[in-house]
Amino acid sequence: MSTPLRPIGHHAETIDPDLWDSIKHQIDEITGLDAATIVILIGIVIVALPVAVIVLAAKKRKADTTRNRTP
Protein backbone atom coordinates (compact mmCIF):
# COMPACT_ATOMS: atom_id res chain seq x y z
CA MET A 1 0.00 0.00 0.00
CA SER A 2 1.15 3.51 -0.74
CA THR A 3 2.01 6.00 1.97
CA PRO A 4 0.50 9.39 2.82
CA LEU A 5 3.56 10.97 1.19
CA ARG A 6 2.24 10.30 -2.26
CA PRO A 7 -0.16 13.20 -2.80
CA ILE A 8 -0.17 15.42 -5.87
CA GLY A 9 -1.81 18.36 -4.20
CA HIS A 10 -5.54 19.00 -3.92
CA HIS A 11 -5.63 21.37 -0.98
CA ALA A 12 -2.48 21.20 1.07
CA GLU A 13 -1.17 17.69 0.74
CA THR A 14 2.58 17.24 0.52
CA ILE A 15 4.23 16.59 -2.82
CA ASP A 16 5.49 13.12 -3.59
CA PRO A 17 9.30 12.93 -3.19
CA ASP A 18 9.81 10.69 -6.26
CA LEU A 19 7.64 12.92 -8.40
CA TRP A 20 9.58 15.94 -7.18
CA ASP A 21 12.86 14.33 -8.25
CA SER A 22 11.46 13.87 -11.76
CA ILE A 23 10.05 17.41 -11.87
CA LYS A 24 13.37 18.86 -10.69
CA HIS A 25 15.23 16.90 -13.35
CA GLN A 26 12.92 18.33 -16.00
CA ILE A 27 13.25 21.91 -14.65
CA ASP A 28 17.03 21.58 -14.79
CA GLU A 29 16.93 20.18 -18.33
CA ILE A 30 14.52 22.79 -19.68
CA THR A 31 15.94 25.92 -18.00
CA GLY A 32 19.62 24.98 -17.76
CA LEU A 33 19.90 27.40 -14.83
CA ASP A 34 21.90 26.76 -11.68
CA ALA A 35 20.20 26.45 -8.28
CA ALA A 36 21.21 29.95 -7.09
CA THR A 37 19.67 31.62 -10.15
CA ILE A 38 16.42 29.68 -9.76
CA VAL A 39 16.22 30.59 -6.05
CA ILE A 40 16.79 34.27 -6.87
CA LEU A 41 14.20 34.29 -9.68
CA ILE A 42 11.49 32.53 -7.68
CA GLY A 43 12.43 34.57 -4.59
CA ILE A 44 11.88 37.80 -6.50
CA VAL A 45 8.39 36.65 -7.53
CA ILE A 46 7.54 35.54 -3.97
CA VAL A 47 8.63 38.88 -2.48
CA ALA A 48 7.25 41.06 -5.30
CA LEU A 49 3.74 39.65 -4.99
CA PRO A 50 2.92 40.87 -1.44
CA VAL A 51 4.97 44.06 -1.80
CA ALA A 52 2.99 44.99 -4.94
CA VAL A 53 -0.31 44.26 -3.18
CA ILE A 54 0.65 46.41 -0.18
CA VAL A 55 1.88 49.34 -2.31
CA LEU A 56 -1.09 49.29 -4.69
CA ALA A 57 -3.60 48.97 -1.84
CA ALA A 58 -2.01 51.96 -0.09
CA LYS A 59 -2.17 53.98 -3.35
CA LYS A 60 -5.78 52.92 -3.80
CA ARG A 61 -6.81 54.05 -0.32
CA LYS A 62 -4.92 57.33 -0.78
CA ALA A 63 -6.61 57.93 -4.15
CA ASP A 64 -10.03 57.17 -2.66
CA THR A 65 -9.41 59.55 0.24
CA THR A 66 -8.35 62.33 -2.16
CA ARG A 67 -11.40 61.68 -4.36
CA ASN A 68 -13.75 61.83 -1.38
CA ARG A 69 -12.25 65.16 -0.23
CA THR A 70 -12.71 66.75 -3.65
CA PRO A 71 -16.03 68.64 -3.68
Binding site: S2, R6, I8, G9, H10, E13, D18, L19, D21, S22
Partner: peptide
Protein backbone atom coordinates in the same frame (compact mmCIF):
# COMPACT_ATOMS: atom_id res chain seq x y z
CA UNK B 1 -7.22 12.14 -1.76
CA UNK B 2 -7.34 8.59 -3.12
CA UNK B 3 -5.97 9.63 -6.51
CA UNK B 4 -3.42 11.93 -4.87
CA UNK B 5 -2.06 9.16 -2.67
CA UNK B 6 -2.33 6.20 -5.07
CA UNK B 7 -1.62 7.91 -8.40
CA UNK B 8 2.07 7.05 -8.54
CA UNK B 9 1.47 3.49 -7.39
CA UNK B 10 -1.17 3.09 -10.11
CA UNK B 11 1.22 4.54 -12.72
CA UNK B 12 3.95 2.11 -11.61
CA UNK B 13 1.45 -0.73 -11.86
CA UNK B 14 0.72 0.33 -15.45
CA UNK B 15 4.49 0.35 -16.24
CA UNK B 16 4.51 4.14 -16.60
CA UNK B 17 7.79 5.87 -15.69
CA UNK B 18 7.89 8.41 -12.84
CA UNK B 19 9.07 11.04 -15.36
CA UNK B 20 5.96 10.59 -17.50
CA UNK B 21 3.78 10.57 -14.39
CA UNK B 22 5.47 13.82 -13.30
CA UNK B 23 4.76 15.42 -16.66
CA UNK B 24 1.09 14.39 -16.44
CA UNK B 25 1.02 15.80 -12.89
Amino acid sequence: ASIAVHYVRWAEDQSISPGTAALAF
